[in-house]
Design a protein around this nucleic acid. Structure first.
Lengths: 108, 108
DNA sequence: ATCTTTTATCGTTATATAACGATGAAAGAG
DNA sequence: CTCTTTCATCGTTATATAACGATAAAAGAT
């Protein structure tokens, strides 16, 4: 996963309401439309729709048309991939930091 | 880790330049000041300082005054904690989603 | 054919963010 | 004491984001 993708995903997830929306979707049997989500939040439908779009564009959720409704569901695969990517990123930072520490120790 | 903290951390990390800054700090033996970082980026010093402040406020890095310089270093512990927290969050989402799927299957 | 439900999109407003240059303060060097 | 280096902060500007209400389109129901 590219650094820009990582940052983009972070930004999409970097809003409490959007994290809340993910929790709502997961709790709602993947059978959840925009109105359902809106009922769980004290926000206008258009605002919720906007947040859903951000999550959708980032690939965190997916949409399926079903009659007049749009069913949203969490893309767990993508979240897991993101988590792994970030985990690797942190690990790399840690490895570099530690080796620097060892260098300093050896030098000092 | 609270949901708001999680989102706050995400937002702090949700910018490519800030991820780059973390990489620079890690590579630079934790002996890196604002100017050093600025030299690695095509951005003004004030801009870099601003990004450093965002990372500092989110607790992703720490600062240590050293003469006229300020040494910055990555707080790997915090990144690791964040990573665990998010991992748990994703895991919870996944568990709920899967149990919902089973419910739907059982319902036929 | 009409009405209702659902929802994405548009237009607007307020606030936040990202970028810059300029500046002043703090610490060390000459 | 004066000069330099380092850097956070201020003021500014442009853009992005978050929130809202209004609206139109699509699909189903009557």
């Amino acid at each position: 996963m590219e650094k820009d993708d990582l940052a983009g995903m972070m930004r999409a997830l970097g809003h409490p309401v959007r994290l809340e929306i993910l929790a709502i979707l997961a709790k709602s049997a993947n059978n959840c439309c925009c109105n359902d989500v809106t009922d769980c939040l004290s926000l206008a439908q258009s605002t919720v729709s906007q947040h859903l779009k951000v999550l959708l564009d980032a690939g965190v959720i997916e949409r399926e048309a079903k009659g007049t409704r749009n069913n949203y569901r969490v893309r767990t695969d993508r979240l897991t991939a993101f988590n792994s990517a970030f985990s690797g990123y942190v690990h790399d930072l840690d490895a570099q930091t530690s080796s620097c520490d060892r260098t300093l120790e050896a030098a000092g």
